[in-house]
Design a protein around this nucleic acid. Structure first.
Lengths: 342, 342
DNA sequence: CTGAAAGCGCTTACAG
DNA sequence: CTGAAAGCGCTTACAG
C-alpha cells in the first residue's frame, strides 16, 4: 500500500507514454491493439490501480454517490440505504452516507458538503417538502421516496398503493375507518392520504358511504401509538373498526396500543401499515401492509443519477398489497356486544 | 459551484503568495498577524473553501472515515452507523458506508476499496472472527463491536454485560435456563456466552445449581424464533423457565414463538435480549435487555482512529441492564399445573 | 516569517 | 494513433 504504482510506472514498464496508458484505461480512445496489450500486461504485472483522487482532481468527478436520509435508524430508510449501496456497487460506485435528522439545515449542509467533494451525484430522501428548493446543482440530484426541492423523484406510487389498502378494508366490510396520516409537509404523507381518502370517496358515491376519521402524526411508532390510544379509549360503538396507517411504524404503534387496551386485532379491529419493513412480518399479529420495492426504487434512482444526460423525469413504481393477520372482516354489531368491552 | 475560488484567487486578493494562504489555512505554521488577517478577509470575501480532493492528492489523506458493517438493515448496526456518523461529524469527518453482508470477501474488498481512496481510517464491524487477518494497513483500522483481524477493538464488555443478565434471572429464581448463543465464530457471540455461562457456573458453586441448556444460532430473528419454538414445544415441566438470548432480535423471535404457542411471557417464561435496539421497547411485552451505549462506542472508535498516533489498545465499555416486562419471577410448579398447558 | 517552485497522479487538448 | 506538456488545487521543503 505504501508505494502504489502509478501511470508513470506502467508507461515505463510497457514502453509507452503515460498518455497512452491513460487512453487504454479510459477505454474510449482508439489505441493500437499491440500497445493496448502491452499496457494491460504492465497493469497486471504491476498490480496497478488508478488513483481515484488524482482522477477526481483532474476531472472534478468521482465515483462516489452521496445519500442523505432523514434517519438511518428508521428501518425503511435503512432498507433503502442498503438497496442504494447495492445498486451503487453494481455500477462500480461507492456510497457516502449522511443523516439529516429531519433538519433542513443539516440536510442543506450535507448537500453542499457532498457538492464540495464533487461526488458523482446526490440522492436525497428529503426531510420535508420545502427543503432544497434553490440549489445550484453542479451534479445531478435525485429525490428518493420523498421529494427534495424540484428534483426528479423516484418513489412508490403512494396514491395507487394507498388505494389498494382502501380497497382491501372496504372489501372486508369496514365502513368506519380511521386514517393515521403522515406529516402534511411531506409529499409521501400527502399522497398516501389522498390516495386513500380519494378511493374512499369514490366508494361513497358508487357504493356504501364510509365514515372516515383522519388523524395526523409523524411517521414514527410513537405517533401511531398515541393516536391509536386516543381512538381506542372510546367505547367500541363509538369508534372505527379499522385503522389504516401511513407507515408500518405507526401501525405497529397502533398494534401496541390495541394490545395494551386488550382490543383483539383483527377480530375487533383491523390495522394496516405501509412500507413492509422486515418487522411487519414479525409483530403479532403480522401486519397487512404495502410493500415498497426498495431494490427497484434504489436501482432506478441510481440509474437516473448516472444516466447521460441525467434523468429529469419522475419515476413511479407500483406498491403491492401484502395481506397478513392484522386485517380481517369488519366485526358484526352483535359480536361487539358479546365481546369483552372496556 | 461552477467556478469555485482557489488558493490562487485568495492569494491575489490578499496580496500574498499561495504558500502563505496555505499556511494560514493549516493554522500550524507561524504567519504574521497582519498577513493572516488579510488572508482571512480574502477567504470570507471570496467565500473560499479548500478543495478537499486536491488536498487529498497532495497529502494522500482525506477527511473521510470508512465504515463497514455486516448489514445496515440490522437495527443495532443501523444505530451504530448513526452514532459513528454523528461522531465523525463532530470531528469534521464524513462517512463512507459499505455492507459486507456477512461475507468475508466482500468485507475484504471494501477494505481495500477504502484503502485505495485513502480514507482517513476504517472502522469495521467484522463479519466473523477470521476476517481481515493479514492486512497491510496504510491507515488506522479499528474494530467495532466485533473484532476484525487483530485490530484494536472498541466494544461493550460483552462478558460483564451478559453476567448482568445471569444475575437478573438467577435473582428471579430461575434455575432452568436456555441460553440462545450467537455464532461461535464471532467474538461477541463467544464472550456473551462465556460471561453468561461463567456466572451461572459460579452460582452453581456458591448457591443453587442451575441447569443450563445452550443452543447456537445466528443473531437474527429467525434463529431466535426457531430455537425457541423447538424448546417451547416440550411440555412445561420439561423445559426452561427462562430464555436468555444473545441479541434482541433473537429474543424478539423467541417472544413471537412463545406468543404463537400461547405461552405467557413473563408469567410462564422469561425472555431477555441484548443490545437494546429501539424495538426492544416496543414489542409486547417490552424486552428486558442489555443496553449497549452506541454513541459512546462510536465516539471512542472515532477517537482511537483519529488519535496521533492512532489508538492501539482495546477499549471496553460497560453495558447496563434494562429491566422491562419480559422477565419475571420463576413460575411455581403449582401455578404450572393450574395454568393452561399446550 | 515569506515567496517561488516542485510535485501529488492523473487526463486531455495540441501537435505530429 | 501516439507523445510531450500543461494543468487540476493544493502543500511543503527550499532559500532567503
Amino acid at each position: 500500500m505504501s508505494k502504489m504504482p502509478t501511470v508513470k510506472d506502467v508507461a515505463e514498464y510497457a514502453g509507452v507514454s503515460v498518455g497512452t496508458v491513460s487512453r487504454v484505461l479510459s477505454g474510449e480512445a482508439a489505441v493500437k491493439p499491440l500497445l493496448r496489450e502491452k499496457v494491460n500486461d504492465a497493469i497486471s504485472a504491476l498490480g496497478y490501480r488508478p488513483n481515484v483522487t488524482a482522477r477526481a482532481l483532474r476531472t472534478s468527478r468521482t465515483d462516489v454517490i452521496g445519500l442523505i436520509v432523514p434517519d438511518i435508524t428508521n428501518p425503511f430508510f435503512a432498507q433503502l440505504a442498503a438497496s442504494v449501496e447495492r445498486a451503487a456497487l453494481e455500477r462500480a460506485h461507492s456510497l457516502m452516507l449522511a443523516s439529516s435528522h429531519d433538519d433542513r439545515e443539516a440536510e442543506q449542509s450535507h448537500v453542499s458538503a457532498f457538492l464540495h467533494r464533487s461526488v458523482r451525484g446526490i440522492i436525497v430522501v428529503a426531510s420535508s417538502d420545502g427543503s432544497g428548493l434553490h440549489l445550484p446543482a453542479s451534479v445531478p440530484i435525485i429525490s428518493l421516496d420523498r421529494r427534495f426541492g424540484t428534483f426528479p423523484l423516484v418513489s412508490t406510487n403512494h396514491a395507487q398503493a394507498a388505494a389498494l389498502i382502501a380497497d382491501h378494508l372496504y372489501g372486508l366490510g369496514h365502513r368506519r375507518i380511521t386514517y393515521i396520516a403522515g406529516p402534511a409537509d411531506t409529499e409521501a404523507g400527502r399522497m398516501r392520504k389522498e390516495g386513500f381518502v380519494g378511493r374512499m370517496e369514490e366508494f361513497g358515491k358508487t357504493g356504501q358511504p364510509v365514515e372516515l376519521e383522519i388523524a395526523y402524526g409523524r411517521f414514527d411508532y410513537e405517533s401511531g401509538e398515541r393516536i391509536a390510544r386516543d381512538l381506542l379509549s372510546r367505547p367500541a360503538q363509538d369508534r372505527s373498526t379499522a385503522i389504516a396507517a401511513a407507515s408500518d411504524q405507526q401501525a405497529i404503534g397502533a398494534l401496541r396500543a390495541a394490545r395494551d387496551l386488550k382490543i383483539d386485532v383483527p377480530r375487533k379491529l383491523s390495522v394496516t401499515g405501509f412500507d413492509d419493513i422486515s418487522l411487519a412480518n414479525l409483530v403479532v399479529p403480522r401486519l397487512t401492509t404495502i410493500r415498497q420495492p426498495a431494490d427497484m426504487l434504489a436501482r432506478r434512482a441510481v440509474g437516473l443519477l448516472l444516466a447521460e444526460p441525467p434523468g429529469a423525469e419522475d419515476e413511479m413504481v407500483d406498491g403491492s398489497l401484502i395481506v397478513r393477520g392484522s386485517s380481517g372482516p369488519c366485526p358484526q354489531p352483535k359480536a361487539d356486544i358479546a365481546g369483552h368491552t372496556n
